[in-house]
Amino acid sequence: MNADIHTLTGAYALHALSESERVAFEEHLAECAACRKEVSELQETAVRLGSAFATPPPDSLKQNVLASIRRVRQLPPDEGSIVPLRGRRWPQRATALAAAAAAIAAIVLGSQVVRLDDEASRAKQQLAEVSSRYEAVADMIAARNTKIMAAEAGDMRATVVVSPQHGKVAFLPKDVPEPGKDKTYQLWLIGPDGAHSAGLLPDKDTPVVADTIEGATVLGVTIEPEGGSKQPTTDPVMTLALG
C-alpha cells in the first residue's frame, strides 16, 4: 500500500479531491482492499455529519420526484463492476469531440467498418479460445442482443463486443501498431454528455472490458501520453459507431 496516496482516504470520503486526484485515487482504490474498507467507513462517518442537518423539503418536491422517475429508465444490474461508477461530465470540449467523432464515424468509417452479424459464430469460436483467460468477454458473447463488430482504421484492427445486457463494451485488439515512445492507446465512450475514458490498452494483445455509459453512441481510440488523459488530447485514430 502506498502510504502517501493512502492518506487521501479522508479527503476522498469528503469529496475534497480535485478531479485528477480523484481519478488517480479511484484507480488505487480498485486495487487496495484496506483502502476500500477505510473509505467506506469514513463515508459512513461523513453521512452522519450530513444527517445532523435533516430538514423537511417542500411537500411539492415529492410529487415532482415521483413524476420525473416515470420518465426515467432504470439501469440493468451490473455483476462485475468493482470500481465506483464515474458520473462526471466534460461539458464543452467533450461535446465538440463527440460531434467530431460521430462525423468521422459517419463519413470515414462507414466504408471501413464491417459488421459481422453473419459471422458472429466465427468470432464466437475464435473468442472461445481465450475464454478461460477472458471470462468476462466470453459471458458477454454468450448474452442475448450482443453485438460483435470488426473495426479497422489504418493499420489498426480490432473486434468490439457490445453487450447491452451486461452494460459492457469489450475491445479486443487484433493488429495494433506501436503507439510511440511514452504513449499509450486510450479508449473512450462518447455519449450525449461527452467522452468518458473506457481505459487504457495494456498491450497489443489484451482485451479491455469497460462499463458502458448511458446513451453511448461511439467508441473512440486516441493516442495519449503514458498513463492516459482525463479527456482526449488528440484526434481519434479509430472510431466505431455503436448504435
Binding site: 463515508q43 453521512v47 450530513g50 432504470q74
Partner: peptide
C-alpha cells in the same frame, strides 16, 4: 432520479442505503 436509475447497482455489502444516497 439517480437513486431510481441506479437502484440495481446498489450493493449492500458496500454500505447502507442511507450512506449510498447521502454520498
Amino acid at each position: 432520479v439517480e437513486l431510481w436509475r441506479t437502484a440495481s447497482r446498489f450493493r449492500s455489502e458496500r454500505g447502507s442505503v442511507t450512506s449510498w444516497a447521502m454520498t
